[in-house]
Amino acid sequence: MYCLICHQKIIYHHTWNSMLSPLSQICEECSIQLEPIQAPICERCGRPFKEPSICNDCLNWQRDPQYEKSLAFNRAIFTYNDRMKDIVYRWKYRGDYELVHLFKPYISEKFPQFYPNTKIPLVPIPLTDERMYERGFNQAEAIAQIIRDQFHNPIVHALSRKQNSHEKQSKKSKIQRIQADNPFKLKISINKPIIIVDDIYTTGTTIHHAAKRLKEAGSPAVYSLTMIR
């Protein structure tokens, strides 16, 4: 097996434990450069925080009458450090699809901790058709498929994304991003709790927009899971 990130050969130390969980597809040197989020975290958005309470950004979301009740909470696995920025760049913008597999062992460890004993439907954040063609795949969908394969949660494509938003999110300022119109349209309404799945929670705008749509359509509680916060 070769490391997904640096292509070096990986030498495994097999133990009883390692036989039960999916094998890590990255070498030790690469994995120590990733930073899994440790407690204490912000109870709402899941970012590392000095105490288990609610961070300022989340307080702002809660003060906003439009979004205060949209999202219950978000959970994330990694921080967005420099190494992760490189990986995301290669994965999403260069289109190196295989890199999604590096999240597998982390998902199988963390997902049951975040959402124990449930088969809540997963809703991946959609891309516009244009972006989808350019990239060839939807990164949120790829993550949702990993969760489905391991925990058998159903995937529901409840949302679609409007064509008109031409600029990439990363090219807008924070205020522009929050004020932008809701790009999501509802395709299917679900009256059950839902977990939104995306690759990254940056300001939370995308996820709050999506949560708002799903909540309006009758879901009693909308959660979310991102790989990175």
Partner: peptide, 21 residues
């Protein structure tokens, strides 16, 4: 070489990871 479920051609096929940069 990696495998990608490609949206463009709706097939899962190979792509080159060596020159992806």
């Amino acid at each position: 070489f990696g495998k990608i479920p490609c949206y463009r051609c709706q097939k899962t096929h190979f792509y080159c990871r060596n020159c992806i940069q």
